[in-house]
Simulated scan of single mutants.
Amino acid sequence: MSENQDLMKKIQLSFQRLSKGQKMIAQYIMDNYDKAAFMTAAKLGEKVGVSESTVVRFANVLDFEGYPQLQSELQEMIRTRLTTVQRIEMSADYSSEENTLKKVLKADIDNLRITMDSIDYKVFEASVKSITEAKHIYIVALRSSTTLADFLGFYLNLIRDNVYITSRSISDTFEMLFRVDKDDLVIGIGFPRYSSKTIEALHYAKSQGAKVLAITDSILSPLAANSDFTLTAKSNMESFVDSLVAPLSLLNALIVAVGIKEKNKVASSFAKLEEIWEQYNVYSNKEKNSK
């Protein structure tokens, strides 16, 4: 039984023993789980017409320690189910530009905090090691995650050889992956709603014996099913836009850690690059241009 069915089944099985107010909460959640998942206990109670304490007791009846745990499971349940239209409807609470700014920044701060608190440092270290040891590195990402692939690929290409970004089209992805083998690393990046093509590419890479690193939002992500290492970063956002702040920060940490491991090689590469950048005026130099 899937997690979605587990939670809904739990509510259904408990329905008969709930109080009148708790039944109203249960019915609202079953009918409007996408909206309830982002309501506070007070707001849910107000919407249903019961007290906040009734909402808390409802969570306890379902064997949750409190309402935040129930809310977290609801949010986990809907990660891959919300359509863009539903996500736009959820943005209705952004009532002003100032409120929008504060809510988005707070959500990103929360995503960063949760990511930092939940990171598995042993997996992070193993991921860094796999990047430094791989013969070839292929980065697979589609849709909004292509931004992350470009960022990671840009810096890894400055640190080491044989880094390929396969995010432009799925046909290009398989054409670039068809020689992948046990000495290579494939990095798959994907967040809800997950690209089915990214999942298929990781499955193929795994079948060829390559190591697979998944960078996604949860160990329950379908990208994790074919990975040797899974690094998670939260991307929750009550809007139609995906939050890439925590994922980008995680990639930043990976790049820095790899750079430290390859310190001598990085220093040599950047020394040569600085000469090229200077010679061909890659970067603006106001002081030089003013002379």
Rank of each mutant, 00 (worst) to 15 (best):
A134L: 02
K135L: 04
H136M: 12
H136F: 09
I137M: 09
Y138Q: 08
Y138E: 08
Y138W: 02
Y138V: 09
I139L: 02
A141Q: 00
A141C: 04
L142D: 05
L142I: 05
L142K: 03
R143N: 14
T146N: 10
L148D: 09
A149I: 00
F151R: 12
F151K: 08
F151E: 11
L152V: 05
G153I: 00
G153K: 00
Y155K: 04
L156C: 03
L156Q: 05
R160Q: 09
R160P: 08
R160W: 09
D161M: 11
D161L: 11
D161V: 03
D161H: 07
D161C: 15
N162W: 05
N162F: 06
V163L: 07
Y164H: 10
I165E: 07
T166L: 12
T166Q: 09
T166N: 08
S167L: 12
R168V: 10
R168C: 11
D172L: 12
T173R: 01
E175Y: 15
E175T: 06
M176G: 07
M176V: 03
F178R: 14
R179L: 02
V180I: 07
D183A: 04
D184G: 03
D184M: 02
V186S: 01
G188A: 02
G188M: 02
G188D: 00
F191Q: 00
P192H: 11
R193E: 09
Y194D: 13
Y194C: 01
Y194P: 05
S195N: 02
S195Q: 06
K197V: 15
T198A: 09
T198K: 01
T198V: 08
I199G: 04
E200N: 14
E200D: 09
E200L: 08
A201E: 01
A201T: 01
L202F: 06
L202V: 15
H203I: 09
Y204P: 09
S207R: 12
S207H: 10
Q208I: 03
A210Y: 04
A210M: 15
K211L: 11
V212P: 01
L213V: 10
L213T: 13
A214Q: 01
A214Y: 04
I215P: 01
D217K: 13
S218P: 11
S218R: 07
S218V: 07
I219K: 14
S221E: 05
S221F: 06
P222V: 05
L223K: 07
L223A: 04
A224L: 04
A224E: 02
S227T: 09
S227A: 13
D228W: 12
F229S: 06
L231W: 00
T232L: 14
K234M: 07
S235H: 03
E238M: 12
S239I: 10
F240K: 13
F240N: 13
S243R: 14
S243P: 11
L244V: 02
L244D: 06
V245H: 08
P247V: 07
L248S: 14
L248R: 10
S249F: 07
